[in-house]
Each structure stands twice: as structure tokens, then as C-alpha cells.
């Protein structure tokens, strides 16, 4: 805000408030849901990576904004990347997270002890990730202002991006990062999905917060 011009300062504050309103979780969740449910393709999850400027004018970074996990359409049980010990570890983490959210008594919940699939686990660990200054697939899409579309496990496995390789290990076959206003929309699928202009358009319509 320019302190010498109060009108500019207040309009800037109003714009910031309007942007914040668009970024609240309620609207993000609805946009992600609309994107997933309206898509012709079978996407397993969608994540909105939100851009923020670091304190003291440091580089911008992308952090967790919101996500929607739909799961796998194909009910054929795929080979898991997890050993029995790893599966036990996943369940333990899920129990702890469940206690954190719902209280200690909820740890007896049967659903928590159900096998944690590879894609569920990949979605969960994504919540702890962030991407600084053009790093990772979401960071590159944001930095270049260009969508990145990787279809096929073989292509994901040779990506120079660790997140893409990690996704492939957890059964993702297609990963897409589409830059939008103040962030990046990432979609992943356990199926091979080739580039679709329809999806790009939907992301631009749903996530172009600046109109």
C-alpha cells in the first residue's frame, strides 16, 4: 500500500480481502470437487498448491492449499509398494493423525486399521510438502507459467523431479500441474491420461481468481 495515497491503500486492502475470500477452504474444496466430478477422465486426486511470498521478501513458495482425494475407479487390487512393516507404519501414522483430529477415543475406529493404499499414502504425505522457487513439478509449472503433463509410468520414473518419481512408485501413471492465479492445480491418476485442452480450460475457469 502507498501511505501517501489512502484511496490506493484501501483499494489494495479490499483487493487483498477479496482474494483471501476466494482462497478460503470452502471455495477451494468446491472448485476441486467441481474439477474432479466434471472431468471425463478418471483422476485419483487433485491438489491446489497455494503460492505465498516468504517473510522478509524471500522467494515465493508453493504450499498446501487444499486437496481432494477421490480414490481409484478401477477396483482391481494393484500391487502395493508397501512391505508389511511399511503398511503397519502407515496405519500407525493414520491412527495418530486420526487421534489428532478427532481425539484419542477415535483411535479404535475400524476404518483407521483398514489397509492404507499407495495413492492414499501419497496424497497424505503431499500435505507436508512445499516447493520453493521453481523446484519440483508444481514449482516448475508456476515458475514457467506453463502446464506440465506427464503421462505414463515410464515417463514419470525418469523425471528429474523427485515428486514425479515418488508418484510413480505409489502407482500414479499420470501427473499434471497447471498454473493458475496464485497457485498450481495438480492432478494425478492411476490411469494413463493424455493431454486434454478441456481440462486446462476447466482449471482456468475454476481457478482464475483474478477473473
Amino acid at each position: 500500500p502507498n501511505p501517501a495515497d489512502p484511496s490506493k491503500s484501501s483499494s489494495s486492502a479490499a483487493a487483498t480481502a477479496a482474494t483471501a475470500q476466494f482462497f478460503n477452504q470452502e471455495t477451494l474444496q468446491k472448485r476441486l470437487l467441481a474439477l474432479m466430478e466434471g472431468a471425463q477422465e478418471s483422476w485419483t486426486y487433485a491438489i491446489f498448491w497455494q503460492s505465498s511470498v516468504a517473510d522478509y521478501g524471500g522467494p515465493s513458495q508453493l504450499g498446501w492449499g487444499d486437496g481432494y482425494y477421490k480414490g481409484e475407479e478401477n477396483k482391481v487390487k494393484r500391487k502395493t509398494a508397501a512391505s508389511p512393516a511399511e503398511q503397519e507404519n502407515r496405519k500407525k501414522v493414520l491412527r495418530e493423525l486420526n487421534s489428532l483430529i478427532s481425539g484419542p477415543q477415535s483411535s479404535a475406529d475400524d476404518a483407521v486399521d483398514e489397509e492404507v493404499t499407495d495413492t492414499e499414502w501419497f496424497f497424505l504425505i503431499s500435505m507436508a510438502q512445499s516447493f520453493v522457487n521453481g523446484s519440483g513439478l508444481p514449482g516448475q509449472a508456476s515458475y514457467s507459467s506453463s502446464p506440465i503433463w506427464i503421462a505414463g509410468a515410464d515417463r514419470l520414473s525418469v523425471s528429474h523431479c523427485e515428486r514425479a518419481r515418488q508418484a510413480q512408485i505409489f502407482g500414479i501413471e499420470t501427473m499434471v500441474c497447471i498454473p493458475s492465479s496464485n497457485g498450481v492445480v495438480e492432478l494425478g491418476s492411476t490411469e494413463v491420461i493424455f493431454q486434454s485442452s478441456d481440462l486446462m480450460t476447466k482449471v482456468r475457469v475454476l481457478f482464475n481468481f483474478n477473473g
Partner: peptide
Amino acid sequence: SSAVPQARKASLARFLEKRRERVMNS
């Protein structure tokens, strides 16, 4: 920003709730 941990917590709560529904319906 404190908004990010809050966002993660809300997303996590929603994920666990949906997972519970999926397990119940399977």
C-alpha cells in the same frame, strides 16, 4: 503463515472422514 497448518488440518479431517465412508461402503 498459520493458514497453512490450518488448511492441512481441515484437509486431513476431510480426508479421514471420506476414508471412513469409503471403508464403510466397501
